Amino acid sequence: MKMKLIAVAVGAALSVPAVAMADVSVYGRAHVSVDYLDDGAKYSETNLSSNSSRLGFKGDHEINPDLKAFFQIEQQINFTTGSSSGGTSFATRDTFVGLSGNFGAVQAGRFDSPFKVARGPFNLFGDQVGDMNNLARVTSGRLDERYDNTIQYTTPDLNGFNVKAAYSMYQGQSLNITDSAANNEDSDAFSVSLNYLGGPLEASLAYEQVEEDTLRGEADSIRAAAAYKLTETFKLVGFYQTTDFTGVDDTTSAQRDAGTFNVFGLGGEFAIAKNTALKATWMTNDSDTRNADATMWVVGVEHKLDKAVRVYANYAVVDNDENVAYSPWMQSRTATPSGQSIDENDVNRAAGEKAAGLTVGLRYDF
């Protein structure tokens, strides 16, 4: 009898972790590339890069038929050196907890703003050489980021439409009330987007404002992105963004002009076989600073070995005006060689030059 009771107790104990973990999944992405990068002046080298690789845990729990709790914990992983980019922090990427139901969803934590997510329909080369952020996220202010201390509401699906609205307390866990520079109340951010997905069309319209004391100064921006599937094999994409950088009280007019710009672009994806596609985008950044415009074009081919694994090759070029030095490789990658000032001898800071990158990559989603 005692042996039977012990066996029942052990079985019950072993079953508890299984029940607790039943709705939790482990996921991730290993994304590496070999890149040849040339800034058009003194730098031309081959690099190995880990491109927004990640490891995450997510799950949900049904409280009742009309209410569900959900969570996600995600960490960036560097597959080229074995280190993470977050130091002692484990949750460096989208990490949140929330509730969802017929009312929509509410979540709190650290995650991409609605404005940042809204670029999705256009970004055919996300986390690769040629990522659109190399021209769209060049303001001196804080925009298009993964904000700390954020609360977000997402409406339920409304015939293909939904709205996301997020507010970030950014610098602290609550609004600060002291007058010191490190504890100013004016350090929040607001972001909202209207999104549509239905039939051949995917589109987003977004607005974001970041207040003065978020380390870099006040900025606001409007963004629109769309993808339209003209045929079963061809998708057309478009993008527009206008960004205004105000800065702080002592920000100079030259600094404001450098962070104020319009950027727009067009592109397309053409399926040449069942699992193979040719892709191309063209973008231009029209800056308020004189002779500081830049144009980027990217061409690439991607082949999906199966649902989880893909390989690709891209070639991207940024053509800079004489007072600016952008490159097609500085976003979402570990291989981001750069210098400290605009000088022809600095890596990736060769103003007025054409910076180019050739990349071959492997992405494994698990």
Rank of each mutant, 00 (worst) to 15 (best):
G259H: 04
F190L: 15
A9N: 03
E212P: 08
N47I: 03
L230I: 12
Y170D: 04
S84H: 04
L135A: 07
T295M: 11
V298L: 01
K68I: 07
S15M: 12
Q171F: 10
I73H: 06
S84G: 11
A271L: 07
V163L: 11
Q255A: 10
S89G: 15
M169W: 06
V192M: 13
L37Y: 02
Y312Q: 06
E145F: 11
N134C: 10
G11P: 12
V324L: 00
A7L: 09
P121D: 09
Y228F: 11
L266D: 07
G352E: 08
D112L: 11
Y27A: 15
M3T: 13
P337D: 09
P65V: 09
N262K: 14
A91K: 07
S287M: 10
Q241C: 03
A206T: 01
G82P: 10
A273S: 13
R54H: 12
D257G: 07
W297A: 06
K4S: 10
N133T: 15
L194E: 14
V301K: 01
H303R: 08
N149A: 07
D257A: 15
D365C: 08
D293M: 09
E218V: 00
V117T: 13
R29Q: 05
A227T: 04
R142Q: 13
N51G: 04
W329T: 02
V311W: 04
T139C: 01
A292W: 06
D249V: 15
D257T: 14
S84N: 13
D131Y: 04
L205Q: 05
T233R: 05
N345E: 14
A189K: 07
E302K: 12
T231R: 04
T139K: 01
F90Q: 04
L194F: 15
N291T: 10
K2D: 15
Y315E: 06
Q340D: 14
Q72Y: 08
H61T: 13
Q75G: 15
E353L: 10
A13W: 05
V117P: 05
V360W: 07
N323K: 02
K229D: 12
V360P: 04
K304G: 13
R29L: 06
R333E: 12
S341R: 09
D343W: 04
T178I: 06
G109M: 04
G217V: 02
N134F: 06
M3P: 00
V8G: 05
R142L: 14
F239P: 00
A325E: 07
E202G: 13
S85Q: 15
L175R: 00
R290D: 12
R93E: 04
H31C: 08
N262C: 05
S100G: 11
G259N: 01
S49C: 05
L5M: 10
T289S: 07
P114A: 02
R333S: 14
D321E: 02
V163S: 05
N149T: 01
A69Y: 07
E185G: 08
N133I: 12
D112N: 14
G109C: 01
Q209G: 00
A105E: 08
T260Y: 00
F70S: 10
F264I: 02
L358G: 12
G238C: 10
T46N: 11
S25G: 13
A273W: 09
Y36F: 02
G86S: 10
G11D: 09
G98I: 03
V16K: 06
A203G: 10
Y207C: 14
D39N: 12
N183Q: 02
D319S: 09
A294D: 03
E353W: 09
G265N: 05
D39P: 02
G28D: 07
V106W: 08
T80N: 12
N64Q: 12
A91F: 06
